[in-house]
């Protein structure tokens, strides 16, 4: 499979707002983080949710964000982090 990103890559979550089922939290859209893990290739929940069981698999990554990047008024220390699993089609390489 594609597996476009490597651990340590800087990635941005697409700023998109599809009306249907998806598993990319609203709060991380448009935010930039770092790939910390490739989880494997999985079917797309945006297809599975609508009965498409045989869609293509694609890479899922764990992406780490600084909490202060996600929440402008975050009141904890600057080293606090948030890790999110994100499907590849939601990610854009930051240096691309």
């Amino acid at each position: 499979m594609s597996n476009r990103f490597a651990i340590g890559d800087s990635v941005r979550v697409r700023t998109a707002f599809p009306a249907g089922h998806c598993r990319t939290p609203f709060y991380c859209r448009g935010k930039t983080g770092t790939v910390t893990r490739y989880c494997g290739d999985f079917r797309n929940p945006e297809e599975l949710a609508y009965g498409v069981y045989d869609g293509a698999r694609s890479a899922v990554y764990r992406v780490r964000f600084a909490q202060t990047d996600l929440w402008p008024d975050y009141d904890g220390p600057a080293h606090d982090k948030c890790d999110i699993e994100i499907y590849e089609h939601w990610l854009v390489g930051e240096d691309a």
Binding site: G20, H21, R23, P45, L48, A49, Y50, G51, Y53
Partner: peptide, 14 residues
């Protein structure tokens, strides 16, 4: 059975 994915159930709840 393979009649219901977790995502179908989540979507139905949403």
């Amino acid at each position: 059975r393979n009649l219901l994915t977790t995502d179908e159930m989540r979507r139905g709840i949403e």
